Amino acid sequence: MAIIINIDVMLAKRKMSVTELSERVGITMANISILKNGKAKAIRLSTLEGICRALDCQPGDILEFREDDRDGEL
């Protein structure tokens, strides 16, 4: 996947647990785990906003673009 979600990095920087983030954002720990493990196909903007509010960060602090090995595939 070319978009990497670095929630674990921000959690460590803020010294916050997945449980606390889950409670603050109002999403399940399972959904946070899906985001952390790179299994998510999409993220709602409202969820991203909630995560940014809870972690006091910008979307660019969480989302990262990396070129992948697929040649020209969309």
Rank of each mutant, 00 (worst) to 15 (best):
51 I>D: 00
44 R>W: 08
25 V>Y: 02
45 L>C: 15
5 I>V: 05
56 D>C: 11
70 R>T: 03
15 K>V: 05
46 S>A: 08
1 M>H: 14
5 I>G: 00
43 I>C: 03
68 D>G: 13
34 I>E: 03
40 A>W: 02
47 T>H: 10
3 I>H: 14
9 V>Y: 15
33 S>V: 09
33 S>G: 13
14 R>L: 04
60 G>S: 06
4 I>D: 10
13 K>C: 02
35 L>N: 02
22 S>Q: 02
68 D>T: 13
4 I>P: 07
28 T>N: 07
20 E>D: 04
10 M>W: 06
52 C>L: 13
6 N>S: 15
49 E>H: 14
8 D>A: 15
13 K>Q: 14
7 I>R: 03
73 E>V: 06
23 E>I: 04
70 R>Q: 10
70 R>D: 12
45 L>E: 13
7 I>K: 03
7 I>P: 00
4 I>L: 14
42 A>H: 15
13 K>M: 14
6 N>I: 05
54 A>V: 00
43 I>K: 02
37 N>M: 14
54 A>H: 03
10 M>A: 11
49 E>P: 01
10 M>L: 13
4 I>M: 08
35 L>D: 01
2 A>T: 15
38 G>Y: 08
68 D>W: 10
23 E>D: 09
34 I>K: 07
50 G>R: 13
32 I>D: 00
37 N>V: 12
69 D>E: 06
16 M>Y: 01
62 I>E: 00
40 A>T: 06
44 R>E: 07
19 T>R: 09
5 I>A: 01
65 F>A: 04
10 M>Q: 08
13 K>V: 02
19 T>Y: 15
43 I>R: 04
58 Q>F: 14
36 K>S: 03
37 N>T: 07
1 M>S: 12
7 I>S: 02
40 A>N: 09
21 L>A: 01
37 N>K: 14
5 I>L: 09
17 S>N: 04
1 M>W: 12
45 L>N: 07
29 M>P: 01
49 E>Y: 05
42 A>V: 13
20 E>F: 03
73 E>C: 07
31 N>K: 08
64 E>V: 11
34 I>Y: 02
44 R>M: 15
12 A>P: 03
7 I>G: 00
47 T>Q: 04
33 S>I: 06
55 L>A: 08
58 Q>M: 14
49 E>M: 10
23 E>H: 07
72 G>L: 12
3 I>N: 09
67 E>T: 05
12 A>M: 15
39 K>H: 11
71 D>T: 04
6 N>A: 10
31 N>T: 07
59 P>W: 09
70 R>M: 12
64 E>N: 14
55 L>W: 01
31 N>A: 11
7 I>W: 00
59 P>A: 09
71 D>Y: 15
18 V>C: 12
6 N>C: 13
12 A>W: 08
24 R>Q: 04
13 K>H: 05
23 E>G: 09
52 C>D: 04
16 M>C: 01
48 L>D: 02
55 L>R: 06
18 V>M: 09
30 A>E: 14
42 A>R: 15
65 F>P: 00
39 K>D: 08
6 N>L: 07
25 V>D: 00
5 I>E: 01
57 C>Q: 08
57 C>L: 10
